[in-house]
Design a protein around this nucleic acid. Structure first.
Lengths: 364, 364
DNA sequence: GCATGGAATGTATGCGCTTACACTCGTCCT
DNA sequence: AGGACGAGTGTAAGCGCATACATTCCATGC
């Protein structure tokens, strides 16, 4: 009834457990005929090695962990809604049913990159998305199960990270670099926004762009603004003198910000530079509704490179972040440290791409 | 240098390892003062329990597994492209740069649902996406690490599944029900397509819709076609007499199918019913280019409910599958079986939603 | 004063595997 | 012929924890 173990296989094949283990780990160390017997026994018994025992004995789990902070929205699904019985439900779906999907896409891609790289290197991937309750517990749980883990942004208190990193390599993904003791992988926020802004100044003669920022506590936002400032400074423009509007990265809030901007009565800015794509899309929504032409009247740019920005009309000029590569790089960093725990902390910056599209360049 | 163990903590706190273990597992069985000492030691030493040892001793891992078949495309990223150094790269992104993202979205959502449900029930989630080489190996690997696993569609040979299910519960997600021995979770493909088709006949007077099918070996496609046929039959229409075009679920191929259809010279069909959204979008592409009005001249419908169908113009009428719920249901099925391994096989069909949008209903 | 019993803690075993080391044979060399 | 040696296999010692069982402690009751 209970799952078979090495002992069962060994007995069934008439060999010792060591031999069974060898057949599975280093087949070449075993004579071909013995190997065949053992494999036959494995098949007959339905033997699957226990990774727990294996990990314990080998002192490594062969698993890497990935932890994301949760987006609060939509996570609190309750159990009730689950038991409806009608197999079909016909609904007239109105156009403005709101945004269904939060920008998790970001995570999905990082996840996909990590997953890909991990398995390719012979590791399995354990995923955890922090939800309301007690992220610390979940992180510790993951930490106990893996050989190394990646943590997104500032989702975990430093203290815990230090605690965990005494046991396994921890790499921070995106967000700010914390202390100088963790490996860190992120994207070139500053350079990306700088290059985009310089383009606007140099090619489109923009002298007084409006910047729509994200939450004040977002390190990514801060870096992007920094790039914006640098670009202008290098063109002898003082960014501090320009309007800075603060949003929360959401499309919805960006809409009301844009409304205010447009309703202000004053002249429209030549360009609106947004700290992420969602907000830029919100701005586009408003301009379209008001009949203001993009990019002829106002240029709009975003940051992230999400799919929706490629589907909008006009398509959104933006800075594309290599999310998949981020995930892959995180895994590589872990493995690299696993390889040599003494090496100095790694801090990797992945390159970004400025994608010039119709929201700034006009249509073809 | 090595990570601290229970023994270290016990020594440091002046208690036995059993007490340390208890403090962590059932804190109430230990006197408050002792507990405090132990916890202090844990903190000082940076102790994190080894899940391997824990699982081995407790005979359960607390992890659930999820295995997806891989989409061949895009998975074969090579290592080289990874070492470019320029932090920014400015690119003029032309409109028809093709489809970047394959419809993995499907998986992303199932994954999110599983992840959510698993953690909520106190389990971690291990993810594996099959890539070209040897899915069997990966599946076995996962199987050894978890208490139960979910496998998507027909991505794994039956033989292996049987082998594995001798050790842990296996639940099949989507795809056909195989044998009657596995738990199975899927969506109401038949009913969904049937309801949609009936709507077209009853409300729009469609009498001879064209069906664009997916790959012949896709069980989902077969079920959808079945629903299509049933709906027509119930309205006294013989589906067998109607044209059935076979695509491969891709947008690209659907375009050429649509081209043929339009170029055929004959009258346009009143409606084109597609077996998935991607293909429906391909059809929309062609009709738009040809200046054929949707839905006035031709009604187009899809199946899946992907995000892109909500972004298209006109927005796509489709049948929405509850992918997140699929993932959640899979986890529930595993746990249910874990709870009672003797219960009869579960086969769950999740309800779908027919979303009527402008590609069939006209604009508001 | 001592027996009694529950609460708190310690002792010892085993979970299923890897692996260092020991052992057994042929084979080849001298 | 005797020994050296390497390939193939077995023996046994953990890996870090949970837990059944044994032990100790202390408050009660008589």
């Amino acid at each position: 009834m209970k799952p078979p173990t090495v002992y069962d296989v060994a007995a069934h094949a008439g060999v010792s457990i060591a031999t069974v283990s060898r057949v599975l780990r280093r087949p070449d160390d075993v004579r071909a005929s013995t190997r065949a017997h053992v494999l036959a026994a494995v098949r007959e018994l339905g033997y699957v090695p226990s990774a727990s025992a294996r990990s314990l004995a080998a002192r490594r789990t062969g698993v890497l962990g990935l932890y994301f902070p949760g987006f609060d929205a939509m996570e609190e699904l309750d159990d009730a809604e689950f038991n409806q019985s009608e197999p079909v439900n016909v609904i007239v779906d109105m156009p403005d049913s709101g945004e269904v999907r939060p920008p998790n896409l970001y995570f999905d891609e990082v996840l996909r990159g990590s997953e890909l790289e991990a398995w390719r290197r012979g590791f399995a991937l354990l995923v955890g998305v922090g939800r309301g309750s007690n992220p610390e517990e979940m992180v510790s749980d993951i930490a106990g199960r893996v050989d190394g883990m990646a943590v997104l942004a500032r989702s975990v208190p430093d203290e815990l990270l230090v605690h965990i990193s005494r046991r396994i390599p921890v790499v921070l993904v995106a967000g700010p670099r914390r202390g100088d003791n963790f490996d860190h992988v992120s994207v070139s926020n500053v350079e990306g926004m700088r290059a985009l802004t310089e383009h606007l100044v140099d090619r489109h003669g923009v002298r007084a762009p409006v910047f729509i920022a994200g939450p004040a506590d977002s390190p990514d936002d801060a870096e992007r603004y920094e790039g914006f400032v640098q670009a202008l400074a290098s063109r002898d423009i003082d960014a501090a003198a320009l309007p800075l509007l603060r949003g929360d990265f959401s499309r919805l809030q960006a809409r009301s910000i844009a409304e205010d901007l447009v309703a202000g009565g004053g002249a429209l800015p030549r360009a609106v530079v947004c700290s992420n794509d969602q907000m830029a899309l919100g701005v586009l929504d408003v301009l379209r509704r008001r009949g203001i032409r993009v990019p002829e009247d106002v240029i709009v740019t975003g940051f992230d490179g999400i799919e929706a920005g490629r589907q909008s009309t006009p398509r959104l000029t933006t800075v594309h972040q290599p999310m998949v590569d981020l995930g892959r790089a995180a895994v590589r960093a872990m493995l690299s440290r696993l390889d040599n725990r003494e090496q100095p902390p790694i801090s990797l910056r992945l390159p970004v791409q400025v994608l010039l599209r119709e929201s700034s360049e006009g249509s073809a």
